[in-house]
Amino acid sequence: MTLLLSRKSIVLLLMGTLLIGCAQFAPQTLFESYIKDLNRSEYLQIEMDSELSWQSLPALRTRQMELSQFDVGLLEFLSLQQCDVGAVAGQRNSILGRVMPTSQRFVYELDIIRAIRSCEIEDTDLRTKLTDVANIKASELPIAFSNMLWAGEETASLFSLANGFIPVSPEASQYQDLITALQHLERIAGNLENIPNVRSADIEADMKVIYESEYLGKLLYSIVHIRHYLEATTQALEPLSQNQSVCGAPLNFLKQQFEAHYIKLLQPYMARINRVAYQVLPLLQSLVQQSPLQAPEWHSFIRQFDVRDSHSAWQGYLSASREHGRAWSRIFAVCGEAVGNA
């Protein structure tokens, strides 16, 4: 009986893995079906090459910035127990503190600034020293915040290209939790000079959402592949706008494929991608602009998501989408046909 259950568990696990894999690449199947059916026409021969161009997330060393180190001596630690400064600094110097995640390091920096500034210190030299420390840490909060966003394990997951496309399912492609988390982080970024009172649990919840979304890697993977499919198809369609022999039955067949695949399946999928991206990408851009991170490799990478840069992957995808629609419109126009539901 135990062996039977084990086999059943293995089968279920394999089926689950297969379903996840299918979901990750379902959009690829949709685009390939579109091209395959268009290629059934004697007027079209769409050929796909294997060249895809994107930049992967640069190495951690280009995304992480150093923070000033601060250690409290033993006597000072004992003298500051009532002010919580020693306790907070001791946490940082503990074994756990030395491997503190970037999100917790950011919260720690906020905590120790508040602890120092709220503490009544009688020793003048010590008060001066700690005031200077608090001021330095306050000036470095944008660095700690940037490290949290771009140098943690959440970053690697957020930008991972290993997870395939944005899901086709409307329910799985909304990413509302991610939008809410980024909005919260943007508010914090804009209020760093006031040393915001941030709860560790809230920060961890935001970073967990970012980690689990895998969104920006999926977005980049999706738009680069979609652009590739659309540009190849558009290139094959272009000559037909100068060829009236396609009018009549040949065009009717092509129009059926256009409406069955592009209008009913692919265009709604792309619209869902756009709807979320138009909310996420401005938030991403705002967070990037407020970060002091200046590494050229980082800026070259993140520029792929720039909504205004004409050379970005995002704008390349939008341009390919527009040109694809125009190519069909020109073919329909030469034959005096309406675009249908386009």
Rank of each mutant, 00 (worst) to 15 (best):
R127D: 13
T128F: 03
K129D: 05
D132G: 14
V133C: 04
K137T: 07
K137N: 12
A138L: 13
A138V: 02
S139N: 13
E140C: 01
L141E: 05
L141I: 10
P142Y: 09
I143Y: 08
S146A: 05
S146G: 11
N147G: 07
A151H: 04
A151N: 01
E153Q: 12
E153G: 11
E154F: 03
E154P: 05
L158K: 06
F159L: 02
F159S: 06
F159I: 05
S160K: 03
S160V: 03
A162M: 09
A162T: 10
A162Y: 14
N163M: 09
G164N: 00
G164H: 03
V168A: 10
P170F: 11
A172M: 11
A172D: 12
S173F: 06
S173P: 06
L178Y: 09
L182E: 01
H184W: 10
L185N: 00
L185T: 00
R187I: 13
I188A: 04
G190S: 11
L192W: 12
N194E: 15
N194Q: 15
N194V: 07
I195A: 08
I195N: 14
P196Y: 06
N197L: 12
R199W: 04
S200N: 13
S200V: 14
S200P: 02
S200T: 14
A201P: 03
A201Y: 08
E204C: 04
A205T: 15
A205R: 14
D206Q: 09
